[in-house]
Amino acid sequence: MDGARVASRPSPQTYLLALGLILMGLALSTVSLWAWFQGVEPRWSVVLFGLLGVYMVFLGVDEGWLSGLEVTPTALRLRSFGRWAAYPLQGFEAADAVRDILGGGWQLVLLGKGREPLRVPLRRYANARQLGQALLDALWLQNKDLLVMPRLAYRFGRPPCGVLARRK
């Protein structure tokens, strides 16, 4: 399975969440602008809420159109705000899953001795299960003694899952 890769595909829920964030940000910015012209005091609070609204708009754009991930047998690539960051998968010894606070999707947490924990957001991708299984396969290809926590094994299965590595 050389040259194999699995890339994220946004789902309709991804776009709904993104549009919700954008609309809330625009509403907050509009109310803050209105409050500024009405002379609401203290002015710093109006500016703070306006900036929070602008941040929410940017977060919505990133969530819907500028973020993604890609799994290969040797590396993980994460995209945020249109910029890719590559992470080699050597050295990870354990994997777990937690709920993502933004949108309620899953985050895979990769742990390794001497490495910072790496959080991989699966968000609301249409192929989140396949991405999780591909990541587990890639980690297992790098470390056959990979420790998969029960919550993660229940959700995605134990490697090899058959996405990037052949099943036993």
Rank of each mutant, 00 (worst) to 15 (best):
residue 42 P to I: 15
residue 39 G to T: 05
residue 21 L to K: 13
residue 35 A to G: 03
residue 6 V to L: 15
residue 107 Q to R: 11
residue 22 I to F: 11
residue 111 L to A: 07
residue 72 T to N: 06
residue 77 R to A: 09
residue 120 V to N: 06
residue 162 G to I: 13
residue 28 L to W: 12
residue 12 P to E: 00
residue 163 V to W: 02
residue 54 V to K: 01
residue 62 D to P: 06
residue 17 L to P: 00
residue 86 A to W: 09
residue 70 E to A: 03
residue 1 M to H: 09
residue 97 A to E: 01
residue 42 P to K: 01
residue 97 A to G: 02
residue 74 T to C: 02
residue 157 G to W: 02
residue 149 M to W: 13
residue 89 L to I: 10
residue 154 Y to S: 13
residue 109 V to W: 13
residue 126 A to M: 07
residue 13 Q to M: 13
residue 107 Q to C: 14
residue 87 Y to T: 10
residue 90 Q to H: 11
residue 160 P to H: 13
residue 157 G to I: 12
residue 9 R to A: 11
residue 69 L to C: 03
residue 128 A to R: 15
residue 106 W to E: 04
residue 83 R to E: 15
residue 79 R to F: 06
residue 12 P to L: 05
residue 136 L to H: 08
residue 146 L to N: 04
residue 88 P to W: 04
residue 109 V to Y: 08
residue 47 V to A: 13
residue 111 L to T: 09
residue 72 T to D: 12
residue 137 D to P: 08
residue 12 P to D: 01
residue 47 V to D: 01
residue 11 S to I: 03
residue 51 L to V: 15
residue 43 R to H: 11
residue 117 P to W: 08
residue 46 V to S: 00
residue 8 S to L: 13
residue 18 A to F: 03
residue 136 L to F: 11
residue 24 M to D: 12
residue 58 F to V: 07
residue 64 G to R: 04
residue 57 V to P: 10
residue 83 R to Y: 13
residue 45 S to I: 07
residue 96 D to P: 04
residue 56 M to T: 03
residue 75 A to Q: 14
residue 96 D to T: 15
residue 44 W to Q: 08
residue 125 Y to T: 01
residue 95 A to I: 12
residue 125 Y to K: 02
residue 14 T to Q: 05
residue 93 E to M: 02
residue 55 Y to A: 10
residue 104 G to K: 03
residue 19 L to F: 14
residue 153 A to E: 03
residue 57 V to M: 14
residue 103 G to N: 11
residue 58 F to T: 05
residue 118 L to A: 10
residue 41 E to Q: 14
residue 1 M to N: 10
residue 124 R to C: 02
residue 98 V to S: 03
residue 19 L to C: 08
residue 104 G to D: 04
residue 45 S to Y: 14
residue 28 L to M: 14
residue 40 V to G: 03
residue 152 L to P: 02
residue 162 G to A: 14
residue 141 L to H: 01
residue 147 L to R: 11
residue 140 W to Q: 12
residue 39 G to V: 07
residue 153 A to P: 01
residue 130 Q to P: 04
residue 12 P to F: 02
residue 163 V to I: 14
